[in-house]
Design a protein around this nucleic acid. Structure first.
Lengths: 110, 110
DNA sequence: AATGTTTATCGTAATATTGCAATATAATAA
DNA sequence: TTATTATATTGCAATATTACGATAAACATT
């Protein structure tokens, strides 16, 4: 990013943008896709699934975790990552809220 | 962004990440917020609302438009921007789909 | 035609992101 | 203890994003 002026926006706008930004990369969409397909969630095999080096995956996982989109717990040697349902619900509600506001608008002219 | 390897992901993943990324900035969240509050959508006053210079706003509007999140039509001298309901529905459906998949998963252990 | 108004584009500086090799850390296995 | 395995961190090069001043383009008004 460049020089984002976070101070100009509300806390809600900054937080929401942060969460959404975390999903705004195909690798991280792919990680979420993958977490949904596997029934176990010991997820070292993400490195084999995506064509990215292990440090790169680790970095993407960290960003998803910081944004609250995934949760991780230590499972002995490995780490268990899974999707944080609450965060996804929050995003669904945000977009649903936009749709409801659009219904109440007098003009959405374009 | 750095060196994103778009070729490694599916067309759906790339497209979705692009749309989501467009909303992953507080200024663009604020623009969407603002478009929802005004009943007219002649939107030159976005420049007064957000604390950003006119070229910066124009650039953000362009990105939102490229991503399909807003639509713009020429209204004489000015331009009328409004939210593209279809795109928002798509995003809502994506997150709703994740929630449904989570319900069907045997383990979401974390 | 000349002026003003509104939005877009260009060029560029400052900063952020992406990806990876090398290395570190932490737990397990031999 | 010494490997081995799994994940994280560091450091860096390549690239992308953000913001803005200057300017252009398009239309409206006088």
């Amino acid at each position: 990013m460049g020089i984002t002026k976070a101070a100009h926006y509300s806390a809600e706008q900054n937080e929401l943008a942060g969460i959404i930004k975390a999903l705004g990369h195909p690798a991280r969409i792919a990680i979420v896709d993958y977490l949904l397909t596997v029934d176990s969630c010991i997820c070292g095999d993400i490195v084999n699934e995506l064509h990215l080096a292990q440090p790169t995956i680790s970095q993407h996982l960290k960003e998803l975790k910081n944004a609250g989109i995934i949760k991780g717990t230590i499972e002995g040697n490995a780490i268990c990552y899974c999707i944080n349902e609450t965060a996804i619900e929050g995003l669904k509600n945000y977009f649903n809220g936009i749709l409801k506001k659009l219904e109440n608008k007098k003009f959405n002219c374009c």
